[in-house]
Design a protein around this nucleic acid. Structure first.
Lengths: 147, 147
DNA sequence: TATTGTTATACTCTATAACTATA
DNA sequence: TATAGTTATAGAGTATAACAATA
């Protein structure tokens, strides 16, 4: 097995997932990437933008652009952080929670298909393998890069 | 195991791969997506744009935008197809082949890390699982979509 | 000094729709 | 009629760099 094949298979699977998700959510005017932000915000009452950067694997500037779009549509709100006045906390609005629930239902089939493509026991193994791949790729210097 | 976790793990792994690849190739002014196009062109002498759309999992318009960028930089060339005058064949130029070889060497560590994150026998299993996921997601109608 | 977030800016990828030309 | 590719257009995500305010 060659590394390039694995890279291409990973790319193809992710793009298929991403496009299928985008297609389902297009009617609601929410992108797959924005859905990831909304989903992260359901896991905790309020997160700082910094937290969200980590959870969504996004660049701070990219995240900000997405938050502004979501804020403009009334799905999220940003408030001053209670104790750290540099930070802002992000949370879902009532409208955002409602929109998310609908999007979650609409995307149920995608998650089902994802799982249906695998033997039941394989899914959790796959997740841990993907996480090991992430660990191997991030937080380690690139060849020839300045430390 | 929940489908959402799998989706998020897939996303995280792909983005890590994509960003690491982009970072390595940035000095050469080639993006990770353009690298995929160049790599596809090494597999066969000449491909039509249609062929490339399939091989790179791209939209025709997206692919065209990338080809124009690559053509402007002298890495690929497009010629009329020999027998189908609607089509154009795309191929690497001498400069493109040389650039690709360099990029391939520079990205060797990424592929090694990808494989190093897994047990040797697991890589091929992973590839086939990813392909089954793709098969489960594409070429089947979305719930509620018009046929 | 390091961190959080903003501003300004630019480019690539992405895709829809209408179109031409050819098979 | 279907297919290959183009044109026009728009938007989303991506990221770099310089910056202000605060920890």
């Amino acid at each position: 097995m060659r590394g390039h094949q694995l890279a291409m298979a990973l790319r193809e699977a992710y793009l298929a997932l991403h496009r299928r998700t985008d297609a389902i959510m297009a009617r609601s005017g929410v992108t797959a990437d924005q859905f990831v932000v909304l989903a992260s915000l359901t896991e905790q009452i309020a997160l700082t933008q910094r937290d969200l950067v980590v959870r969504t694997s996004s660049d701070p500037n990219t995240l900000r652009a997405m938050l502004i779009l979501l804020e403009r549509r009334g799905l999220i709100e940003r408030r001053p952080h209670a104790t750290d006045s540099r930070a802002r906390t992000v949370s879902l609005t009532r409208k955002g929670r409602s929109a998310f629930r609908k999007l979650w239902r609409q995307s149920e089939t995608v998650r089902q298909r994802l799982l249906a493509a695998l033997d039941p026991d394989d899914a959790s193994v796959l997740v841990s393998q993907l996480r090991r791949i992430v660990a191997g790729l991030v937080n380690s210097p690139v060849q020839g890069e300045l430390s």
